Amino acid sequence: MKYGPDIAHIAALIGDPARANMLTALMSGKALTATELSQEAGITLQTASSHLAKLDEGGLVIPRKQGRHKYFSLTNEEVAHVLEALMGLAAGSGHLRTRTGPRDEELRKARVCYKHLAGNMGIQMYDSFVRQGFLDIGANGLTLTKAGASFARNFGIDLDSLRAKKSPLCRDCLDWSERRTHLAGSLGRALLTHMENLGWATRIPETRIVRFTASGQTMFDATFQK
């Protein structure tokens, strides 16, 4: 391709195994230091710093300095969206790095995908929204309907605040484990945060797993019926 976006450059940045591991670690939405990311990638700190400089230059991560420490996070939801899609493509093609285990089952059930809920429970919530007419799926993407807005407000979501932000309110995201859609966008992030504030679920440290309590699971299933 002689003209247009240089997808080969971005693909090369993501395609390096060490950089791919670091980017995947940042899918939790949590900012990490170069030391933490070097451990995730299994490389030296010096090598990790070199990789992070390339990812920063390529627009895939953004550094933030706080006190004596420098933290890195994904630049935006667009990067996470691409990474999740690539994970789905890799999984669908049979390119899995390890054998599955108990932790993998938890990841498939409920996990963080850049601050919104993914996995089986994320898909359940999305399907429930569609079935109840809360989302309109059009040629230009997802739109929250009046019924959906009413539900969100009654659930405790400040829609006015979300709509004042630049990021899309609703966005579909292809789930890597099921290769079906879950809800992203500022509404998807707000819903997960609110469920955590309600005590329904917690994020497990050092992983992307979201673990629901027994009562939280019951409330989730009652709110987002299958």
Score class of each variant (00 low, 15 high):
Met1Phe: 13
Lys2Asp: 15
Lys2Arg: 09
Ala8Asn: 06
Ala8Val: 15
His9Ser: 12
Ala12Thr: 12
Ala18Phe: 03
Arg19Trp: 00
Asn21Ile: 04
Ser28His: 00
Lys30Thr: 00
Thr35Phe: 02
Ala41Phe: 03
Ala48Thr: 01
Lys54Pro: 02
Val61Ser: 04
Arg68Cys: 02
Arg68Gly: 15
Arg68His: 10
Lys70Asn: 11
Phe72Ile: 01
Ser73Gly: 12
Val79Phe: 04
Leu86Lys: 08
Met87Val: 02
Gly92Cys: 08
Gly94Trp: 05
His95Leu: 06
Arg99Gln: 14
Thr100Ile: 02
Arg103Asn: 12
Asp104His: 07
Glu105His: 11
Arg108Asp: 06
Lys109Asp: 14
Cys113Tyr: 07
Tyr114Gln: 03
Asn120Glu: 12
Asn120Cys: 08
Ile123Glu: 09
Ile123Lys: 11
Asp136Gln: 10
Asp136Pro: 00
Thr143Met: 15
Lys146Cys: 05
Phe151Glu: 14
Ala152Cys: 15
Ala152Arg: 07
Asn154Pro: 05
Gly156Tyr: 13
Asp158Arg: 11
Asp160Phe: 05
Lys165Gly: 06
Leu169Phe: 01
Asp172Glu: 14
Trp176Glu: 15
Trp176Asp: 13
Arg179Gln: 14
Arg179Pro: 11
Thr181Glu: 14
Thr181Asp: 10
Ser186Glu: 13
Gly188Glu: 03
Gly188His: 01
Leu191Ile: 09
Leu191Ala: 01
His194Cys: 09
Val210Gln: 05
Thr213Gly: 05
